[in-house]
Design a protein around this nucleic acid. Sequence first.
DNA 1: TCTTAGCACTTATGTTAATCGAGTGCTAAA
DNA 2: TTTAGCACTCGATTAACATAAGTGCTAAGA
Lengths: 346, 346
Amino acid sequence: MLTDRQEMILRAIVRDYTNNGVPVGSKALVEQLPVHVSSATIRNEMAVLESVDLIRKTHSSSGRIPSMRGYRYYVDHLVRPDVVKDNDVDLIKTSLGGDFQKIDEIVAQSATILSDLTSYTTFTLKPELKNSRLSGFRLVPLGNRQVMAILVTDNGDVENQTFSVTHNVTSEQLEAVVRIINDQLVGLPLEDVVEKLKLQIPAEVTRYMQKPEGFLRIFGDVLTRASQERFYVGGRMNVLDFSEQTDIDTLRSIYSLMDHTDDIAEVLGEPSNQIQVKIGDEISNSDLLKNYSLITATYDVDAHGKGIIALLGPTRMPYSKMIGLIGAFRNELASKLIEYYRHFDE
Amino acid sequence: MLTDRQEMILRAIVRDYTNNGVPVGSKALVEQLPVHVSSATIRNEMAVLESVDLIRKTHSSSGRIPSMRGYRYYVDHLVRPDVVKDNDVDLIKTSLGGDFQKIDEIVAQSATILSDLTSYTTFTLKPELKNSRLSGFRLVPLGNRQVMAILVTDNGDVENQTFSVTHNVTSEQLEAVVRIINDQLVGLPLEDVVEKLKLQIPAEVTRYMQKPEGFLRIFGDVLTRASQERFYVGGRMNVLDFSEQTDIDTLRSIYSLMDHTDDIAEVLGEPSNQIQVKIGDEISNSDLLKNYSLITATYDVDAHGKGIIALLGPTRMPYSKMIGLIGAFRNELASKLIEYYRHFDE
DNA sequence: TCTTAGCACTTATGTTAATCGAGTGCTAAA
DNA sequence: TTTAGCACTCGATTAACATAAGTGCTAAGA
């Protein structure tokens, strides 16, 4: 257990180091601490903190920097989220203020706003119901043997894909396929749709069409895309700024991660209602992100489920500021979406 | 006018420097040149080449590197495209061999293949007719007051967008709008459509609907997107490898350029049938890309127009190899697309 | 006139040694 | 428990020096 003074010193070290990026020594601490003791005393306390692995040296006679456990302790016990500046709140409000056609636009835009605000890299996921259901399927002939398949879910997601058909497919046949799918599958959770798609449907469709595999594959593709979570990424290039000293291969891996929604989902993990901070190797078991921290927050849109926003920055980030910002942002985003859906549900 | 020997020396300097990235001196040249002269002779010749600004020194006693004009001379008079390895041809063929649903997939995939092959950054543009025409417009109600607008052009491009309508819009009204647009505008070049959209159409539509502005704006959006050229980018991250010594701000600018199709179009300029090489500040008048070269080639899909592929790499790139590769690739891509369209036109 | 050997000169690069400064740990006294 | 004092460590900076690669120039040879 740490004494008050030790906690104060740890807090000061984290704050100073995250602001300046330079290991902080006993003298510097004496000057900024409110207590009136000598640097030798501070040194003794620092030795204690080092012995319990909360801070460490970069070399035998350097100042101290927080260890992973030190950051952890700071985040768990010491950090007080900054109050967000009025400026920034206004910025968020106006950026979210435009009139958007689709949820996706709002959520994509959110990633950008948040990354501008923090100068880190951000991920956003739109609110999703655990089990969204199929609410409609269309096949729209576009002429020239092209057809567009459109799938709509009950929380308003729309996925589409165009494909070519052989010229002996008639529009009656298309309608028949659509009718079967809508009759049999609308209202079911998407997972169940996937199941049934393998079992019943092929047989039924065969009555109207000799080789329905092509159609069903397209339907399957669109279905997969609709049931897949999709993250938006903001401030990709910011990684270049805050990854000092990182070799190119690591950067490549990080960028490749950003292009794979599944990987992002895995990295973010199961979010809780609290704002969650993962530090260094807590993020994933590879040490690709060992010098990074990830702050995750959920936002709650009542009946329409919960979404996620997240922030990737260096381990030495100003946590209090970032936690404040992400908290404020999720609130604004939640209100915006609640308002959006109210309009949508009427 | 250069003597044969001077040309030989220039060629050797370019080849050596593009391969090794190290300024090349008279001794090194003596060893690799077929002629049997001393280094002093080479030095004299080099002095001549330097006096006409084809090569230059990095410092007063360094070896020589090609100047911009040197590269230009090399590319215009000396380069012989490498014959592409069977390996690579096979790779191209198989990578383009899959069965794609849409032209866009092929063209996007091309950017990736070409960047893998060259380890540079690539841009591809699908073949486009100068004046493609509107061939159809649909409004598909998706339920819940969502509607999808779909626009099809006569060379097979499909653009779509979903939007919300107020609940007092009836499906008869939608059909009326679609009918007017299709009756009046199908068959016209997209530019003319844009024109007419401002003049005649609003009046006509008003007969069926009080405030058609929303609809017409959506239609306009989709139209804009359909008439806009869209480049695919491959090997974005390769920039990091070949931009040695480039500061982060420049990198940011380059990446931001890649995200703006208009800017790419401007940078690529008007392509010719020849394979075109732009070196350093020839690329654009800002000096953002002064250390880069751009190789552009068109590919010809007969009646379906011409597309563009391009390659961005460092000024010191192995031109003979790259020109060979891009040439081979454009041929393969052209055949693939001709085959694709044959299937499509039947 | 062209070529070449020889040489003095220039510059980047790498190594070593010296110095400086920030910071630590320890000891002994208050 | 605190603190002044001091020896010690290590990174960072600088200067001095050597080396290697390369050049231009000169004068002699073909």
